[in-house]
């Protein structure tokens, strides 16, 4: 009985995120990863400043008129430099591969040295 209850509750909990619409639309994704150049380390999504507001409007237009990720990326990088993009791991894939590779090597070495032969 108890087990069934636990199981049902668990399923319920897991279903909750499905009823919320996908909040990370393309626009959200981009605005969370463009740095506001006049704020202290904030992206334009979080930053309440007017400057960020203008940038958000430009971004909104770009998304609405169907620009590709490549085009959007180029637009911002040409104007503000690479620093403007706060998720450089998207274009520099080695940034993700490097830590994962190091972690894998570490785990392998760690397990090898502690395992029973």
């Amino acid at each position: 009985m108890n087990k069934v209850l636990t199981f049902t509750l668990l399923i319920l909990l897991l279903a909750i995120p499905l009823i919320n619409e996908d909040r990370d639309s393309r626009y959200e994704n981009w605005s969370k990863n463009i740095l506001c150049p006049v704020c202290q380390g904030e992206n334009i999504s979080d930053s309440p400043s007017e400057y960020a507001e203008d940038m958000r409007m430009i971004l909104r237009e770009q998304i609405d008129s169907g620009l590709s990720d490549e085009e959007i990326y180029n637009y911002w990088v040409v104007r503000y430099g690479e620093r403007i993009i706060t998720n450089p791991q998207r274009t520099n894939i080695e940034m993700i591969i490097l830590p994962i590779l190091l972690i894998s090597l570490f785990i392998l070495a760690f397990i090898r040295s502690t395992k029973n032969e």
Binding site: N43, R83, T86, N87, Q89
Partner: peptide
Amino acid sequence: DRQLTIGRSFYDTL
């Protein structure tokens, strides 16, 4: 010779 910003999303992901 170019600067890079590593933001929250890098750490959030990993």
